[in-house]
Design a protein around this nucleic acid. Sequence first.
DNA 1: TCGATATGAAACCATTTGGTTCCCTTTTCT
DNA 2: AGAAAAGGGAACCAAATGGTTTCATATCGA
Lengths: 109, 109
Amino acid sequence: MTGSAAPKHDVFQAIADPTRRSLLRLLGEEELPVNAISSHYPMTRTAVSKHLRILSEAGLVKERKVGRETRYRLEPEPLRELQEWLAYYERFWSNKLAALKRFVEDDET
Amino acid sequence: MTGSAAPKHDVFQAIADPTRRSLLRLLGEEELPVNAISSHYPMTRTAVSKHLRILSEAGLVKERKVGRETRYRLEPEPLRELQEWLAYYERFWSNKLAALKRFVEDDET
DNA sequence: TCGATATGAAACCATTTGGTTCCCTTTTCT
DNA sequence: AGAAAAGGGAACCAAATGGTTTCATATCGA
């Protein structure tokens, strides 16, 4: 069935906000509960919580209840859509060789 | 001076709207005047024009006056910023080899 | 020159967005 | 048991967003 996702919020729209982009960075480092997250931001916990919900609806974070906390972590998969969208435009600025150069130079595994 | 860019609209925000993403696709194909562009959309010319302005402020399109027309074309350079932002997350879903495979398969030059 | 074409600018409007405060529920600690 | 901690929900608010209609301006063609 198609019932799995039906994301209410678009990934494009989700990352449009700088606070949410910052949240993704933060949650890429480690799973964190709401209070710990919101302590990084100059807004109320409620506001951060709403951003987290939007990210969650876009599938970009996953939440997990642990006792009285709700812990959030990055879920990068939906960013593939962005990558695919972007891939279309790569031909406009990069010939493949230049891109490959970047690619290899950036490899540290 | 810092006067060169100072983009009023963010590239992230600019691409958040589906109409604007569609416009970028269209203008990647060919340079077009406003009327020709707006004929593709179910909204008024003025609305399309405003989207074009937002794209322009984000540096994603360039305009050129030709007689009484204003012709727009894609300016993909600012999308690099998006690509760089996204690069950070690639490590989460792709090992470099898988990415390279995609990369090479997609190469048709 | 005069009408039609192409576009921008301004005023306006409804909805969405990003934020707040206040309150409720659940869980933990002593 | 009772207080404190953690977080969600609801009501509210100002500003931004995406659209409209109307008007003004510049250019083109006959």
